[in-house]
Design a protein around this nucleic acid. Structure first.
Lengths: 190, 190
DNA sequence: TTGATTAGTATCGATTCGAAACTAAATGCG
DNA sequence: CGCATTTAGTTTCGAATCGATACTAATCAA
């Protein structure tokens, strides 16, 4: 059946990207997981920049992620900031150095070159992958980590003013584009 | 730019599949790499079932792959067979047990369920991914590991009879569908 | 107040992985 | 032929990921 072929394709792509990621991180002394953590933290919103959210995103255990964060902090790529409301919670903020490393390392050179050679602008690929990801997350009961503005808790309050229905906090236009761990897609039935 | 988003998608998909693969291998005491090795060996041709080819396919070092193979052999999932022509070369053959494990473990359940939910039959996805993989392999100077029958060394010799232009050996119809490490795509310019 | 839950950390052992040194066979060049 | 070089594969070692488990501290619920 066709599933096998699709699976082989995805696995091979995954391996190639992982190898590239390994090479891209090497000069900075970073492993693939470290780059992935940095990339997540750069693109998530203020509810989702915590060890717990990162743990869910990466699909690892919290102990493992805690180690990863220790290393990134020692290297000065991120800093920790205690939450003012819930003192158990810690927010992870990229430093300038962290952002610089990320900008230089990801996406890897090979990937950028390949993308340039791709016939079309990759829109079809984007759409197919998004669909697959959605199906995977639906099949599992997993969080979607989608952009804030596409969530069912997202509320419009007039020109350029938004609010999160879950936390009741106001949201800026930039906020609405960041990934959120509480993200729930709008179900087609409504 | 759009590359970032595409990259994030692929990385996330890769992580999900890897997590699933880890879970699928757990009951057999196998890690993701082990399943990947088995899957490759099941679908490659007789020129490509060697440690060196597997090393290239996985993008690891030969020492690492050597360890992986040791474990798989100990578990009775594959056996080694010395090449009769070149006594340095070793061929890796799946045992019945190896094939059974593979059949049971891959693709992971989650993936199959997701595929079933996918609108359409995944043909668009297949095409997009194949294109991307081709672009990646062209951008790198990497081997393509494509099916024998789509290689520029592949020769037709009449009804159902084929030959490899590189080794001059005759090929069966089944041969022509297996992955080959010497595979070179037919360049569009010819 | 007491018990349960949640966020995060610390420690341990198993495993992957790369680097480098090594063996053995094949190849190439004088 | 003879000797250096290359290639296939193994071995050894150390660094790093990762999961499991136990732990602290804060919050929440009854």
């Amino acid at each position: 059946m066709g599933g096998d072929r699709l699976y082989a394709l995805l696995e091979r792509l995954g391996n190639l990207l992982r190898t590239e990621e390994r090479a891209a991180g090497l000069p900075h002394g970073l492993q693939p997981v470290h780059l992935q953590a940095l990339r997540y933290l750069q693109s998530c919103n203020r509810y989702s920049n915590t060890p717990a959210a990162l743990t869910e995103y990466l699909g690892l255990t919290k102990g493992t992620v805690s180690q990863t964060l220790l290393l990134l902090e020692e290297k000065g790529l991120l800093r920790k900031q205690a939450d003012t409301e819930d003192r158990r919670v810690i927010h992870l903020l990229l430093t300038e150095a962290g952002r610089a490393v990320l900008k230089q390392a990801l996406p890897p050179e090979l990937f950028k070159r390949a993308l340039a050679k791709l016939p079309g602008d990759g829109a079809a690929l984007d759409e197919s992958l998004t669909e697959l990801l959605r199906a995977l997350q639906a099949a599992n009961a997993q969080r979607s980590f989608g952009p804030c503005g596409t969530c069912k808790h997202f509320q419009r309050e007039g020109s350029g003013r938004f609010r999160c229905g879950l936390t009741q906090e106001p949201l800026s236009r930039e906020d609405s584009q960041l990934l959120c761990r509480e993200h729930e897609g709008i179900s087609p039935g409504h």
